[in-house]
C-alpha cells in the first residue's frame, strides 16, 4: 500500500502552483494538509504525475475579515480555524461543526479549502459552506473567478474547479445580526464521515437547511417560516428529492428518516437561538 511514483514540487508562490497546474492539468494534484489525498495516493486510487505542495505559499495563509466576509486562505488548517478567536462570533455554524471534522490529530494538518476541494458528500465543511452561501476564489494563469458553494459542488467528489485552477480561498459571510445556527450529525462512530449531517441557518422569516451524507453532494433547502405539519411535509418532500444513498452503514430509507427528524430538530434549534 505505497503510492505510485510522482514528481513533487514545493511551490514558493501562487505563480509556481499555477504553472504546475497549467502544465499538467488533471495529472497534477495539489497537496495542502494531505489528510484525504494521502490515503488515495497510498491506495493508488489517484496517480498524479506531479504533486504540488502549496503549504509554503505565504499568500495562501491567514484568516481575515474582509468586508462582510471572512476570508480563509487555502493554507489554513482546520485546527487553526477552530482556534481562531473570532470563530464563535462570526462563524458560529463552523464553530459548532468543526469539532466533527475527523479527529484532532487530522484537523491539525487538514485544511478548510482542502476539504472543499475534495468535495466528499459526507464531509462537514462543504455542507457548512453551502448552508452559509460561501464563495470559493479560484485562480489560474488565465485569471480569477468566484464560484458560490451551490455551484461549486457538482457531484460525488466532483467540483466546478477546472483542472488548471487553484482554490486560493473561501469567503464566508459573517453572521448577520439576529441569525441563529445549529449543526447536528449522526455517524457510526465519532469522527467518521456523517451518515446524515444537518446544518440550519435561521434569520427572520427565512430558514435554510443543508444536509450532507445523504446524496452525492450536500443539498440545500429553503424552508421559509414553515412550521408544524407544513414543515414536516416540506422536509418529507426534501428527503424524497435527495436521491438518498443506500450503503453498508445505512439504508436510504434511514437517511431520509434522519433528514426528516434530525432536520426538524436542527431547524428548531437554529430558530431558537436567533438573537
Amino acid at each position: 500500500m505505497k503510492p505510485a511514483r510522482f514528481d513533487y514540487i514545493r511551490a514558493g508562490d501562487i505563480a509556481e502552483a499555477h504553472a504546475a497546474l497549467a502544465d499538467h492539468g488533471n495529472d497534477a494534484r495539489i497537496i495542502a494538509g494531505g489528510q484525504t489525498l494521502m490515503p488515495m495516493l497510498s491506495m493508488r486510487l489517484v496517480r498524479p504525475k506531479i504533486v504540488v505542495d502549496i503549504m509554503h505559499v505565504a499568500a495562501l495563509h491567514g484568516i481575515a475579515a474582509s468586508g462582510a466576509d471572512i476570508r480563509i486562505g487555502a493554507g489554513v488548517r482546520q485546527a487553526e480555524l477552530l482556534a481562531w478567536p473570532g470563530l464563535a462570533e462570526h462563524l458560529p455554524l463552523l464553530h459548532a461543526a468543526l469539532p466533527w471534522v475527523g479527529h484532532a490529530q487530522t484537523r491539525s494538518r487538514g485544511t478548510v479549502c482542502g476539504s472543499a476541494a475534495h468535495a466528499d458528500p459526507s464531509a462537514e465543511i462543504p455542507l457548512c459552506l453551502l448552508a452559509l452561501d460561501a464563495t470559493l476564489e479560484l485562480s489560474s494563469r488565465r485569471g480569477r473567478r468566484r464560484v458560490t458553494a451551490a455551484d461549486f459542488f457538482t457531484g460525488m467528489m466532483t467540483t466546478a474547479r477546472a483542472d488548471n485552477e487553484l482554490i486560493e480561498a473561501v469567503r464566508i459571510p459573517k453572521k448577520p445580526a439576529g441569525a441563529g445556527y445549529a449543526f447536528n450529525e449522526f455517524g457510526r462512530r465519532h469522527g467518521d464521515f456523517a451518515i446524515v449531517a444537518c446544518a440550519a441557518v435561521a434569520s427572520g422569516d427565512t430558514t435554510r437547511l443543508a444536509v450532507g451524507g445523504v446524496a452525492d453532494t450536500p443539498a440545500l433547502h429553503e424552508l421559509g417560516a414553515l412550521g408544524g405539519k407544513e414543515l414536516d411535509d416540506a422536509l418529507d418532500a426534501f428527503a424524497w428529492a435527495l436521491d438518498a444513498r443506500d450503503d453498508l452503514h445505512a439504508t436510504a430509507r434511514y437517511r431520509r428518516e434522519l433528514v426528516r427528524r434530525m432536520g426538524r430538530a436542527t431547524i428548531e434549534e437554529a430558530r431558537a437561538c436567533r438573537d
Binding site: 500500500m1 489528510q35 494521502m38 490515503p39 497510498s42 491506495m43 490529530q105 487530522t106 494538518r109
Partner: peptide
C-alpha cells in the same frame, strides 16, 4: 496507512499528526 488508527501519530511542528498521511 490510511489515517484511521493513529498508531503512527508523531508531533510535526508542535502538533500531533499522522505520519502515514505525510510525505
Amino acid at each position: 496507512e490510511h489515517g484511521v488508527c493513529g498508531a503512527c501519530t508523531v508531533e510535526i511542528d508542535g502538533v500531533p499528526a499522522r505520519s502515514c498521511l505525510t510525505l
